[in-house]
Amino acid sequence: MNRRDAIRHATLAAGATLLGLHLPVRSWAALAAPAGWSSDDEKFFDLVGDTIIPTTKESPGAGAVGIGRFMLTMATECYPTTAAETLRRGLREIEEASRAKFSRDFGALLVPERERLLLDYEQQKGATNAFRLMKELTLRGYFTSEIGATQALRYLPVPGGYVGSLPLKKGERSWAL
């Protein structure tokens, strides 16, 4: 295991603590924080996003692209006004579930615990909308980010032409666009 892999594995295990290492220059964190949300809120959504799309050996996770700020900015500026309320409800319900199940805040959970919690939450009746929105914002933000598009997917800004029939080799990623 080389140093880079070591860091990635550590990130995988420790979650939030190492996310800061991966913040790219042109990430959402460069934008002003959306009004009405605290930096703790933003960290919470960073963690939710990074649990949905974690760092793997091929590519950094959603926490590395400032996904929390993306989610809050998009929900505030681009989604119907109900979206921000939906996120607030989701935050509250996930924190409540975390304390009920593990007696700790969501941010203090280990990766498998966070995954378990979100998987349960996804299935929970009535929670669907809030988690669907978090997931949609996470995927949209991550896969349109430079890291997501170029490392988790294959990004061809100038394909040069259209090839209609290509054999797909095992493990090959889809196109970002």
């Binding site: 997917l153 990623r173 970002a176």
Partner: peptide
């Protein structure tokens, strides 16, 4: 066409295996 990452929008799951699945052509 084949779906890309948008296949994950309607799918259940989180984590590395979910990421692995939705980054391959759907």
């Amino acid at each position: 066409s084949r779906s890309g990452w948008t296949q994950g929008l309607g799918a259940n799951g989180v984590g590395a295996s979910f990421k692995e699945k939705i980054t391959q052509p759907g």
